[in-house]
């Protein structure tokens, strides 16, 4: 899937903005590094977060990674399919493997994040 238009963080989260809301997930690079993902712990809907807060944890067999909120906002939806099929993150990181839908406090905050080209350069560096 194309990553055009997505925004990325140094800690490998992606964000797809649609008006005042944004879907977020883990990058394909990150899922590949983690290997088979076996469990995802997601926040409750309605949780308010600041940029840099731990939003979720993603577990492979032998590692645990924390997922940080790239921006401030409120959790409006979580991907319930991940409870039974955490491997969606492995198979479709930018699609069905999304984690959380956020309502953004300040849409302008996304300007701090990397573009897909910048992110690609970041992971190769």
């Amino acid at each position: 899937m194309s990553t055009a238009g997505l925004r990325f963080t140094e800690s490998h989260e992606w964000l797809k903005v649609d008006g005042e809301e944004a879907l977020m997930g883990l990058s394909d690079y990150a899922q590949h590094e983690l290997g088979d993902i076996v469990f995802v712990e997601l926040p409750e809907e309605g949780t308010a977060v600041s940029a840099g807060d731990v939003l979720a944890t993603v577990e492979s067999v032998k590692s645990v990674s924390e997922v940080y909120s790239p921006v401030a906002g409120e959790v409006v939806e979580i991907n319930g399919d991940l409870e039974d099929s955490p491997d969606l993150i492995n198979t479709d990181a930018y699609g069905d493997g999304w984690l959380i839908k956020l309502k953004l406090t300040d849409v302008a905050e996304i300007d701090r994040l990397m573009s897909d080209d910048e992110y690609e350069a970041h992971t190769k560096g």
């Binding site: 577990e59 492979s60 067999v61 590692s63 645990v64």
Partner: peptide, 9 residues
């Protein structure tokens, strides 16, 4: 479920 344990977490 070893990710609960001290050697990982």
């Amino acid at each position: 479920l070893q990710t609960r344990e001290q050697h990982i977490r």
